[in-house]
């Protein structure tokens, strides 16, 4: 009886967005009277961080502090249309739409600033701290709060912009089956190191090495966390999660999600993550989608590591102790 160590790897290519009847998302942006830019979306942030990332996109294009951006995803009935947050498309689609909307709003912002400062809009620049200033004469400047007030109450202007990103529907070429369903693809590889207890069948994941090529990482901390949280979910799919009972009687199965097995803090692997940045030409500042793919490669990597450790080819998820032991027995010819 021994604990057998093994290492396995797996790779994944993952599309950003999908075909549907075209894959659009819209964004509208407007300035309040005091210079907060409200980005209206129907896209949902369910914890993945969409609000943070698209606020970064808006702030970057407007040349204003991140704190000046307010993302409003309140209502899909009244907001501009979004196909949805799925297919790892949010950052790419919504980010592009927000960039387009913010660019239009920036143009109005600079035009109003030009009127206020009595200069040509082409001579103006934003400094990222909230001021719009004349290039080379930074003392001639106006703060966005004063500018927004002036736009409303003096010039009668709305500082606003519209944006949409549309990936048009791609039809299939009948002869070849060719189509162009997505916008770009992210790539990743996971190496898993596991230990298999050949007496109990328990598989423990010791290490996960994650390498991700995702275009540009708009928010590297969130990217790393998505990679590691996703790897944890992959490990969960591989070793724990099932609605069916592990053992023959149905009442051994989970009755609800509180009994649904997933790894806890004591089951975590050491994770090592590397992000490679090769900007996609159609991505917002080069970003590709990094969502669902993070749970994919860990599963076959763990299966391959189990094979490396003990020669067993597990084929049904989750790789429970019972399944590993049955396969081990079959391998040894003891059943």
């Amino acid at each position: 009886m021994a604990k057998l160590k093994g290492r396995g790897y797996a790779s994944v290519n993952y599309p950003t967005g999908m075909n549907l009847g075209g894959d659009p998302s819209q964004a509208l942006i407007h300035s309040t009277t005091t210079g907060t830019f409200v980005v209206s979306l129907s896209s949902v942030d369910l914890g993945q961080g969409l609000k943070t990332v698209v606020a970064q996109c808006a702030a970057e294009v407007l040349g204003l502090p991140f704190e000046n951006i307010l993302i409003d995803t309140a209502d899909t009935d009244t907001g501009p249309h979004c196909m949805g947050t799925f297919a790892s498309r949010g950052t790419h689609r919504v980010g592009n739409a927000v960039i387009m909307a913010a660019a239009e709003a920036r143009e109005v912002m600079l035009a109003v600033a030009a009127d206020e400062l009595e200069v040509d809009p082409g001579d103006l620049e934003t400094d990222g701290t909230g001021f719009i200033a004349v290039k080379g004469a930074e003392e001639k400047r106006i703060h966005i709060t004063d500018l927004a007030l002036a736009a409303h109450f003096k010039h009668g202007r709305t500082i606003s912009g519209r944006g949409i990103f549309l990936k048009e529907q791609s039809t299939v070429v009948p002869e070849t089956g060719e189509m162009d369903p997505d916008s770009c693809q992210a790539h990743a590889c996971t190496v898993a190191v596991v230990e298999v207890d050949d007496e109990t069948g328990v598989v423990e994941v010791l290490e996960m090495h994650n390498a991700y090529e995702i275009g540009r990482a708009l928010n590297p901390a969130m990217v790393t966390q998505q990679v590691e949280g996703g790897a944890w979910m992959g490990m969960s799919h591989a070793l724990f999660e099932a609605t069916e009972p592990y053992y023959p009687a149905r009442d051994h199965g989970p009755a609800d999600f509180t009994e649904y097995l997933m790894p806890g803090p004591a089951d975590i692997a050491r994770q090592y993550s590397v992000i490679l940045e090769r900007p996609a030409d159609n991505g917002p500042f080069g970003a590709k989608g990094i969502g669902e793919m993070t749970a994919n490669a860990p599963i076959p990597a763990i299966a391959n590591a189990i094979f490396d450790a003990c020669g067993v080819r597990v084929e049904t998820m989750p790789f429970t102790p019972e399944r590993v032991l049955r396969d081990l027995d079959a391998l040894k010819g003891t059943t």
């Binding site: 966390q225 949280g229 944890w232 979910m233 803090p265 004591a266 975590i268 994770q271």
Partner: peptide, 22 residues
């Protein structure tokens, strides 16, 4: 490390994978 893990064993996280929390 193990005492931290034990302490938070009753707290479920479904995003981070726990490592950053520990």
């Amino acid at each position: 490390h193990d005492e931290v893990v034990e302490a938070i064993s009753g707290n479920v996280c479904r995003c981070t994978g726990y490592r950053a929390i520990v």
